[in-house]
Simulated assay, not measured.
Amino acid sequence: MAKINVRPDIDAAAERIGSVVGAKREIEHLPEVLWEGETVDMLAGGSYGGGIGLLALTDLRLIFLKHGIMSQKLEDFPLGNISSVQWTAGMLMGTLTVYASGNKAEITQIAKPAGKALSDKLRMTLAQLKAPVVPPAPAPVALLGVQEVTSRLATLDQLRAAGAITDAEYQERRSAILSSI
């Protein structure tokens, strides 16, 4: 595809997909629908809801944009709302089915190489997004208790050696520390 000179991330994505017949207008208008700070990862041409347009995968959403002379259509699927995607392909074209918030959207007539690459990237992004965050394992409570008691006893020994507490106070506090175990 010829260089469009819209924005570096959009231009790079457009160059990777090659020819997107009839999508130049959508590519030029894509910055108008992007959120602040949102970047485009991949593009593909396709048909959705009776119109041929542009499918854009960003770091935040999957967007279908049709920007015709007589009508415009914009539908977006925030990545956090997408539960799964399905890619099916024939010889040249394929269909990307997106399941989001209990709904199903089928984007058809996507060129096979671009659609496969986009669906793979989308699946990988969703897997990373939904991967459970595993917190670091906490130190065993018993070990923390032993370390705390040892520290308190060492401080108590230092206080007695410095003459800050009497032997009777030392014995009383030492007994209290040991009984807290």
Results as ranks from 00 to 15, higher is better:
E75R: 08
G51A: 15
Q128L: 10
V6K: 03
T150N: 07
R174M: 07
A168D: 13
T108K: 08
V133L: 11
K130L: 12
L65Y: 08
I52S: 15
F64A: 02
S71K: 12
L118V: 07
S179I: 14
Q147R: 07
S101I: 03
L144R: 09
K66G: 09
I181F: 15
E28M: 14
G45N: 02
I10G: 00
G51P: 15
L34V: 05
I52C: 12
V20P: 01
K121L: 12
V141F: 06
E148V: 06
K3L: 13
D59K: 07
R61G: 03
G80P: 02
R7H: 06
M91Q: 07
P8F: 09
D11P: 03
S71H: 08
A89S: 10
A44C: 07
Y170D: 04
V6N: 05
T95K: 10
M124H: 12
G37M: 10
E148I: 05
L156W: 01
G115C: 02
A127L: 11
L159G: 00
V20R: 08
A12S: 10
N103F: 13
A161W: 09
A161N: 13
L57I: 11
E15R: 13
L153T: 02
E106G: 00
S119I: 01
P140F: 01
A100N: 04
G53H: 08
K104T: 11
V21M: 14
L96I: 01
L144A: 11
V33E: 02
M42L: 15
P132N: 11
G45R: 07
E172T: 15
I63R: 00
